[in-house]
Simulated assay, not measured.
Amino acid sequence: MSTIWPQGRTITVKRTTSARTTAFAAGSGIALPAQPGARTREACSRQPAPVVRDLRERAGRSPHGLLFGPRDLVVVTGLPGSGKSTLMKRAVPGVRIDSQDTRDRWDARMPRLLPYALYRPLVRLAHYAGLRRALRGGGGVVVHDCGTQAWVRDWLARAARRRGGALHLIVLDVGADAALRGQRERGRGVSRYAFLRHRRAAARLLRSVEKGRLPEGCGSAVLLDRPAADVLRRIGFTG
């Protein structure tokens, strides 16, 4: 199916358990081909099959908004420098948890000559503490994810189930060269070793999502390239 999105269109994503329905709005972009055995797995499971929507290669003619359920959790993932923080600052009017925001707050308090590596563990602790507080609130939350720590997604999937919502992925498919340029533009990067580790993890996740195989506990995924991310103006929650 190939559908050209009208300007200003918003996708509403609904993901629920057996007593409810899982769906995207009608006309939701390019549906990935059905995977072998998908119908069998769906028939044998009480949980609905994961939903993947590919909004790449639309030349900017993609939705301006993504709406999720009121208790859902949304993870924005991609390479360092791919534009995750920029997208979240522009498009998330509600609660967003971004490790970069936590680091910026700590950087402002620390002596300028103090290496970040010395207080990095404290920044991470503060970030996860903030995430835990946000999850206790019960409302929808958008979370920045570097892609290398699968345990964070597992934690979020469990939290989403407990609160009666679902976990969703927004995957930024931005190449390594563009991500490195993004790091230079923001004046802050990661080491070569760390970037290679992120790149391998991001490639594995992208290949898996493209085949319709989402991480355990994840109900849906949206694939974005840079043009699709650039036109996205709202990531929000219904209710």
Rank of each mutant, 00 (worst) to 15 (best):
Phe68Asp: 04
Val209Phe: 01
Thr77Gln: 04
Val174Asp: 04
Arg161Thr: 13
Leu87Asp: 03
Gly60Ala: 15
Leu196His: 13
Arg15Lys: 03
Ala108Trp: 08
Arg132Tyr: 08
Arg192Ala: 12
Pro48Gly: 02
Thr102Asn: 03
Arg9Leu: 10
Gln7Val: 12
Asp230Ser: 10
Arg46Val: 12
Ala221Asp: 03
Arg234Phe: 01
Val52Cys: 05
Arg105Pro: 00
Thr12Cys: 08
Ala117Thr: 15
Arg9Phe: 14
Val76Arg: 05
Cys146Tyr: 02
Asp72Asn: 03
Arg192Trp: 08
Ser45Val: 04
Ala91Gln: 09
Arg120Glu: 11
Arg132Asn: 10
His168Leu: 04
Arg71Lys: 11
Arg15Val: 08
Ile97Val: 15
Gly164Asp: 05
Gly27Thr: 10
Val141Glu: 00
Glu57Arg: 14
Ala134Asn: 04
Arg9Val: 12
Trp151Met: 10
Ile170Met: 10
Arg133Glu: 15
Thr77Asp: 07
Asp72Trp: 01
Ala194Ser: 12
Leu156Gln: 01
Leu87Phe: 10
Val75Pro: 00
Val190Ala: 02
Thr77Gly: 03
Val51Met: 14
Leu32Ala: 06
Ser220Gln: 04
Met1Gly: 15
Ala31Glu: 13
Tyr116Asp: 07
Arg158Lys: 13
Val76Ala: 12
Pro33Met: 09
Leu113Phe: 06
Arg162Gly: 13
Arg186Ile: 04
Ala202Ile: 01
Thr10Ile: 14
Arg186Asp: 06
Gly29Pro: 03
Pro80Phe: 04
Arg162Phe: 00
Gly164Arg: 10
Ala150Trp: 07
Arg207Met: 11
Arg61Trp: 04
Leu32Trp: 03
Asp54Ile: 03
Pro227Ala: 01
Pro48Thr: 07
Val52Ile: 15
Arg207Ala: 15
Gly37Tyr: 06
